[in-house]
């Protein structure tokens, strides 16, 4: 379990650029959970996940991973973080070397490293024949998979993904989301930062909404999409399907606007028309 207790964070303290990013945030993530964190640019999402991953030192409050402070290395190593546009961090000559970089730094044995590299590649759907190819010659979607494989090779218990589908085309997006779902089913705890309400609707069982450094909402995605005031305050919009159903509603069709996936919307309209 990850426990976030009363965490506040202010950048550039004592300068004219002082900016408070987080205000007394508390929540916890249970093992096996799929938590989405939503919020507009500047809402504090990135600061929050970096604090959870132990990448920013705590100013106040506490973050505990399985009961141990995240400032301790064993706790920190349980958490993997995939940044936005992670492919920008690729640097090695070959795909295999890039994925092996993290495990090597953990001091693992060669045999274990190459085993993990292969497992991670298989998991994200990269052909093993790509091992000796330069990562820079791959497509955008493939590069991103290499970057994610590099984190998976560290075998984190908790995986944080920051906007993992930004900039991907619809197919690459669907594939990547399916893989994240697979990781979750395999037992990994996922923290998924996104402003795509559609992705959140399709994946997460719980969503926390951040705005001005505070948690405005913590609950089921379905509940969130019904609360226009909160969405508005957080600068978010319901998924396109829900927007569509709301529009049908406004036009005088008595459909329940609570549908959050296309399947649900289809069923609801059929129910009304029959």
């Amino acid at each position: 379990m990850i426990d976030v207790k009363n965490v506040s964070h202010t950048y550039a303290v004592g300068t004219p650029f002082e900016k408070t990013a987080l205000r007394e945030i508390s929540f916890s993530v249970s093992e096996g959970e799929f938590l989405a964190i939503a919020g507009h640019t500047g809402s504090g999402k990135s600061t929050l996940i970096q604090i959870i991953a132990g990448l920013i030192n705590l100013q106040s409050g506490a973050v505990e991973v399985d009961g141990e402070s995240v400032s301790v290395q064993t706790a920190r190593r349980k958490i993997g973080i995939v940044f936005q546009y992670p492919e920008h961090q690729l640097f090695e000559e070959t795909v295999a070397k890039d994925i092996a970089f993290g495990p090597k730094n953990f001091g693992l044995a060669e045999a274990e490293i190459s085993k993990r590299v292969e497992e991670a590649m298989k998991f994200v759907g990269l052909e093993l024949s790509l091992k000796d190819v330069s990562p820079f010659e791959l497509s955008g979607g493939q590069k991103r998979r290499v970057a994610i494989a590099g984190i998976l090779a560290l075998k984190p218990k908790y995986l944080i993904l920051d906007e993992p589908t930004a900039g991907l085309d619809p197919k690459a997006r669907r594939n990547l989301l399916a893989e994240i779902k697979k990781l979750h089913r395999a037992g990994m705890t996922i923290i998924f930062v996104s402003h795509s309400m559609e992705d959140i609707a399709n994946l997460a069982s719980r969503v926390a909404v951040l705005a001005q450094g505070k948690i405005l909402f913590d609950g089921e995605p379905r509940e969130l999409f019904a609360q226009e005031k909160i969405l508005d305050a957080a600068g978010l919009l319901p998924p396109p399907v829900t927007q569509l159903m709301l529009e049908l509603n406004r036009a005088g069709l008595s459909v329940d606007a609570g549908a959050i996936t296309l399947d649900e919307a289809e069923r609801e309209i059929l129910r009304q028309l029959k």
Partner: peptide, 13 residues
């Protein structure tokens, strides 16, 4: 060239 890829829904609008 993909001017909204990195933006939140409000920013995209």
């Amino acid at each position: 060239d993909e001017p909204t890829a990195m933006l939140d829904p409000q920013g995209r609008r």
